[in-house]
Simulated assay, not measured.
Amino acid sequence: MGGIPGLDERTVSAAGVDVHVAEGGAGHPVLLLHGFPQTHLAWRHVAPSLAEDFRVVCADLPGYGASSPPAGEDSPAAYAKRETAATMVALMRELGHERFSVVGHDRGALVAFRAALDHPGVVENLAVLDVIPTVDNWAALHGAGGVFAFHLYLLAQPTDLPERMVGADPDAFFGHFLDGWTSEPDAIPADVRSAYLSASRAPGSIHAICQDYRASAFVDAAHDEADRDAGRRLTMPVLAMWQDPGDFVLPFDPRQVWASWAPDLRTRVLPSGHFLPEERPAEVTAAIRELLARS
């Protein structure tokens, strides 16, 4: 699998992390952050279009893809979204961008949310795709709904059990999500699927992914709760997009959840599976452009 057409790839050192990025275009800077179990290639359809009018930076999250793990102690706290968000802000500064917009999907959206909440003077616009803040997500999970989110519990186990279990057949584990979370069979073609699996199957990558999920269980939720209790809210324009759940009844209302954090909110619901940037790239790109028009 090659790179994203029109974007140049390199590795940039930021906050002690070697962050792999693909970047291109000119104009207002936009940081695109991928989800699980993916890499910056998740934006291969969206980024080239945005790069026609914006400076686009697609980054592999620390420990994912070709980016190194966080610097310092190997602990869930090092993978906290607060720490990863600070690394992404440092990355953009290394690239010459003091202010920028950020768009995230899944895990990347949690990092984007934290960047916007912790660095309101830096993040001008925020878009979050198919996710809600960690504290709200844990509160909503109960009963049979937990069946569909089993990986949140498995990967967060505080021992090396998940590493050992996933490591026994990583392609089957990660492939389960790549295949089962999409409503479009061709949305993730064989070469991209292979690239995602290749990036995820190494023992170090598996461990980094588990640490990311441990952070959500044991660190991120506490950060969110403290900020919510302190009345902190997102001060910039926010776009929240999610897949139409169809007949499945969500245990939460995404619009209501995001409205509690974002006074300046717009929303989109798309007929799609989980991987919105790959299944509905035209609609996702159009919605992002509409948000960025406010810059």
Rank of each mutant, 00 (worst) to 15 (best):
N137L: 12
G63N: 11
V219Y: 02
I288G: 02
I209S: 07
V46Q: 08
H34W: 05
M1A: 15
L95K: 05
P271L: 12
A230C: 07
V131E: 02
V111G: 06
R201I: 09
S200V: 02
E52I: 01
E278R: 01
P29M: 02
A172N: 08
W138Y: 13
V30M: 02
A286C: 03
G104N: 10
T11I: 14
M165E: 06
E83P: 01
A59P: 03
A109V: 09
L197P: 03
A226T: 14
A202V: 09
F100N: 04
V103E: 07
V257P: 05
R44C: 13
D229P: 00
Y79A: 13
V238D: 02
D212P: 08
A115S: 10
P271K: 12
D106Y: 11
R201N: 08
E225N: 02
I188P: 03
V111L: 05
D224H: 05
G63R: 13
A187V: 05
V135K: 00
P237M: 12
A217K: 11
F148N: 07
H28Y: 00
V131M: 13
H223R: 01
L95H: 04
A230I: 11
L33C: 04
F100R: 03
D264Y: 06
F275T: 01
H28V: 01
L250G: 11
H274E: 03
V135G: 03
A287W: 04
L61W: 11
D191V: 08
D160P: 05
S67C: 13
T285N: 04
A42Q: 15
V57S: 09
D247L: 15
S216C: 14
I4A: 06
F150A: 12
M165D: 00
T87G: 12
A149I: 01
V46E: 09
A86Y: 04
W138R: 06
H151M: 05
R55Y: 09
A78H: 10
I4C: 06
L292I: 12
P76A: 11
A208D: 14
V219S: 01
A187M: 08
H151A: 06
Y213N: 08
R255F: 02
V166M: 08
D186R: 09
V257R: 09
M165Y: 06
E23K: 01
D212F: 10
K81H: 09
M1Y: 10
P263Q: 06
